[in-house]
């Protein structure tokens, strides 16, 4: 077949002498300038968001097509999963749900108590959060950054800046939203910083992605800082992006050199940054909601224990296990 194709295409070599239009050099100059202009317009002026969204929608069917083989493989695997496996999984999930129900009851009481205490103190900090479950479609194709693409977008009320978590902790932040998909920058990307707090002593810091070797850096902390290996970092929530108290990372290595005033602290993310399929997109709903509104939401939330719930209850679980 390729031979036949070859023969067919051989004949078109002839008109190559009569190629008209501008020279290759002129084209090179024109399109290079155009590319540079595009880069400037996109990165500095953010003019091309709608263009990108439109083209991305055009690309969506192709994306579905490209994802089809792996999707089919997974579906087939699910279909042929054994009876025993399903039974054991069911048992495991039931046990887990009982454990979670107990914590949830405690949480309900605690939430109510917290609201009353807050009312007594007349502070209003508690912020209700909304969550959307999403599935990772594919990891980013750009080898220079750490991103994933999830299957929820504008159509599902996702907006840029929302936090993305999985069952074990924060994995990233939504950075770009398309109509049907959105792009999440992982916490291990060098461009992402996340305000954290050491769970043990409440020390605040900022964690930066380290890039290549999926770890986090904790710079700007003095060498005499009270931090130990195995310390758990949770979100401090002072940025108004990430809800308070979500697990982020565990300190894995501390290097103190005598010639530097700062300690070199490396942490391993707790969330499955590389290996999960289901994630939750958490948005802090309207930071300026009135006290009554946010409190009623907080009371209502534990009552309807649905898929949205784990995001709220996650950190307590983790510590209790």
């Amino acid at each position: 077949m390729t031979r036949r194709l070859n023969k067919k295409l051989e004949q078109q070599q002839a008109p190559a002498f009569f190629v008209h239009g501008p020279s290759a050099l002129a084209r090179l100059a024109f399109f290079s300038v155009l590319s540079l202009a595009l880069m400037a317009a996109d990165s500095r002026l953010q003019y091309l968001l709608t263009v990108r969204q439109t083209l991305q929608t055009l690309l969506h069917p192709l994306q579905i097509l490209a994802n089809a083989p792996s999707q089919l493989y997974r579906d087939a695997g699910e279909y042929f999963s054994t009876h025993d496996y399903l039974l054991s999984e069911n048992k495991h999930l039931k046990q887990q749900s009982i454990g979670q129900a107990i914590t949830l009851q405690k949480l309900n009481t605690l939430a109510l108590e917290n609201i009353h205490l807050r009312q007594l103190l007349q502070v209003n900090e508690s912020i209700a959060q909304a969550t959307v479950a999403a599935e990772i479609m594919h990891v980013g194709r750009d080898t220079f950054s750490r991103k994933i693409v999830i299957n929820r977008g504008q159509a599902h009320q996702i907006s840029a800046g929302e936090a993305v978590v999985d069952a074990a902790g924060v994995i990233g932040q939504v950075t770009r939203v398309y109509p049907l998909t959105s792009e999440v920058t992982l916490i291990t990307d060098t461009t992402l910083a996340i305000p954290v707090q050491i769970e043990r002593n409440g020390l605040r810091a900022i964690a930066f992605g380290h890039g290549r070797d999926s770890s986090l850096d904790l710079p700007y902390l003095p060498s005499n800082v009270d931090i130990r290996r195995g310390d758990k970092l949770v979100t401090s929530g002072i940025d108004g992006v990430y809800p308070t108290g979500l697990a982020v990372a565990i300190v894995s290595k501390i290097e103190i050199s005598p010639d530097s005033p700062f300690a070199r602290i490396i942490c391993a993310p707790t969330g499955g940054v590389e290996n999960h399929k289901q994630v939750l997109v958490v948005s802090i709903a309207h930071a300026h909601t009135s006290q009554t509104e946010s409190s009623s939401q907080l009371i209502a939330a534990p009552a309807n224990a649905d898929a949205n719930q784990p995001a709220n209850t996650m950190p307590p679980h983790h510590t209790s296990e």
Partner: peptide, 26 residues
Amino acid sequence: APNLCNVGTAWFVGLFVDLATGGVFG
């Protein structure tokens, strides 16, 4: 087949790759 595609085609294709990789356009 230099009569069917040229530098401009490459540019156009590159634009789609930019879109697919999610990087800055261009």
